[in-house]
């Protein structure tokens, strides 16, 4: 029965243009799968994620566990970590196993990266949508607030606030960075909402009598969010870089937390003699940041083929 109606409908109105593609997201996904950079980034990030989530898979030492000052600054026996003995990455200036410290140092930057982006993204979506959708006074007010926050130099702001509250953990640091981070994303979100708000299909929904919440959730957000989402993904890498900078400067996380930034900070006085102390965290950090950037780029290109 359905076959006959299909034939009838096709005869009258023409065949469906293309049967293969289903939606923008599935098109984007197929495009992504074709990209080498995407897979490189995914593999690296998967590895980093595994280090952060399940460190016990990679080392049986705890953070700062079994540190022995007498064994400090042992160079790795070989540059090939798989061939080396007890301390494949050597030991740091406190005599801790450097591989174990690297593993445990992964969690903090990654958690901070996602938390800060999450906080900023949430604020951006809520404030940007309200600002763009309702316009007028609310928009004027929110835009001025955004401007004020935008005027704060990010790194300096973070240093000042974090110095004022010296005993902070990962979550306080994320909160502070998140508060400073949202303005750019909010502006982006607002612009997106503005461009979608007057689209014909939004008008059509309004003419059906749909309420504001439905219009926002069903029509505006799905069409406005892609660029913001991509920006957020690029952003995770940038935040990780900032987190490491703060740690390095001594205003971020503090001992006994372990992080790549702290490891770099510890190595700063002696790295000319013991370069591996700088190289390992440097490589891990760069690989992670770069992977997020590559991933964001790949997703952006896949979602918007016109940008290519």
């Amino acid at each position: 029965m359905s076959e006959t109606t299909e034939v009838a409908a096709t005869a009258q109105t023409g065949a469906v243009v293309s049967g293969a593609s289903a939606s923008l997201w599935s098109d984007a996904w197929r495009e992504l799968c074709r990209r080498v950079t995407f897979w490189v980034a995914v593999v690296i990030l998967f590895f980093m994620g595994l280090l952060a989530a399940l460190p016990s898979l990679f080392t049986n030492l705890g953070p700062n566990g079994h540190c022995d000052v007498r064994q400090a600054k042992q160079r790795p026996a070989s540059w090939n970590p798989f061939a080396a003995g007890e301390h494949p990455f050597g030991t740091d200036s406190h005599g801790c196993d450097y591989w174990a410290q690297m593993v445990h140092g992964t969690r903090a930057p990654i958690v901070v990266g996602f938390l800060v982006t999450g906080i900023a993204l949430t604020l951006a979506i809520v404030l940007g949508s309200l600002s763009g959708y309702y316009g007028r006074l609310l928009d004027a007010f929110l835009s001025r607030v955004t401007d004020i926050f935008f005027g704060l130099p990010l790194l300096l702001g973070a240093v000042v606030i974090l110095t004022a509250f010296p005993s902070h953990g990962m979550f306080t640091e994320s909160f502070v960075l998140g508060l400073l981070w949202w303005p750019t994303m909010t502006r982006l979100m607002r612009g997106q909402v503005l461009s979608v708000r007057d689209a014909d299909y939004v008008q059509a929904a309004r003419m059906l009598g749909a309420r504001d919440l439905r219009i926002m959730v069903r029509h505006i957000l799905p069409n406005a969010i892609a660029p913001v989402f991509v920006y957020a993904m690029l952003n995770v890498g940038v935040v990780i870089g900032y987190e490491a900078t703060l740690d390095y400067l001594g205003v971020g996380l503090q001992y006994p937390t372990v992080s790549w930034g702290l490891q770099l900070s510890q190595a700063q006085e002696i790295f000319t003699d013991y370069p591996y102390l700088l190289v390992y965290p440097g490589v891990f950090l760069t690989a992670t940041v770069l992977s997020f950037l590559l991933l964001g780029d790949a997703v952006r290109d896949a979602l918007d083929p016109r940008l290519r």
């Binding site: 359905s2 109606t5 299909e6 409908a9 096709t10 009258q12 109105t13 023409g14 469906v16 243009v17 293309s18 049967g19 593609s21 289903a22 939606s23 923008l24």
Partner: peptide
């Protein structure tokens, strides 16, 4: 969909898969 001359089996397709005339329907 049947009233406007479209195939009811196409409910799960997206607008970009249709021609201009079909979209207007």
């Amino acid at each position: 969909l049947e009233i406007v001359g479209l195939d009811p089996e196409h409910v799960n397709r997206y607008p970009h898969q249709f021609s201009g005339g079909q979209r207007q329907r």
